[in-house]
Amino acid sequence: MASSPPVEVHGLTKQYGDITAVDGVDLTVEAGDVFGYLGPNGAGKTTSMRMMLGLIRPTAGEVKLFGKDPQESIGALAGVAGFVEAPRFYPYLDAKTNLELLAALDGDGAKGLIPEVLDIVELTDRAKDKVGGYSHGMRQRLGIAASLLRKPRLLMLDEPATGLDPAGMRDMRLLIKRLASEGITVLLSSHLLAEVEDVCDRVAIIRKGKIAYQGQLSQLRKEAGLSYSLRTTDDTAARKVLDSFSAITDVAATDDGTLRFHPADESAVAQLSGQLTAAGAMIIELAPRSATLEELFFELTEGES
């Protein structure tokens, strides 16, 4: 029997009054994944992760972490660590004492790891300072340290790089890469694709509580590459042709009048060029473009599809 995946989510839904914050999310994170959970502000990332960590109750659906439901027992969080939104600590205690407290609540000799995790996040010098006086970036790093105390097999981080300066962001990326290379499965949320592009291998894109895309990042790149740009002598006629063509989808006009679209395949492009000429729109430019991931992401999260 195959062992259960680190995260398996089915039909996960959370309703806040009229707002459906998370709406039937299905998600699987496989062992060894560095999984990017992407979506714009208010998409439902934090809410889903709260449910995954057992902090809030799903309205419907279920979460399994290594096959166990965090709603049923805290034991489901064995080997799981992370934080949602900004990590929080007791402001009136110093960093070391905060970690000692959490280590005590972890049990299992976690206390012995404190010097090591403080070192990893480079807070050893400040360990004796009250967390109340910590900067945002320091708290963020302390959050990582607190998670590492649990010797996690699965690390869930909600926008860990938010509010960090460029160097801090780079350090965070390097750290996540390093942890992943040590075999830790990572689920990482972000509202910036660029931020996770070079650490994640799989992504899910959530939009208004629903998963808009889930799969390999490389696959997403391939899809992104299928876009074409078109400039003609007659924009209106060209637009008409594009809109009437069933093998062509996602037509959009950019600010400078260039049209963009997704052809079903190359033969659709060939046919299109003939039809454009017939319609009197002479082609100035018709080119496949490697749309940046960012554009695709924008399309997936903001588009009307």
Partner: peptide
Amino acid sequence: QNGTLKTILTRSVDR
């Protein structure tokens, strides 16, 4: 008020 409930409730002690 400190937002620390989430911090302690994601360790190994139950509510």
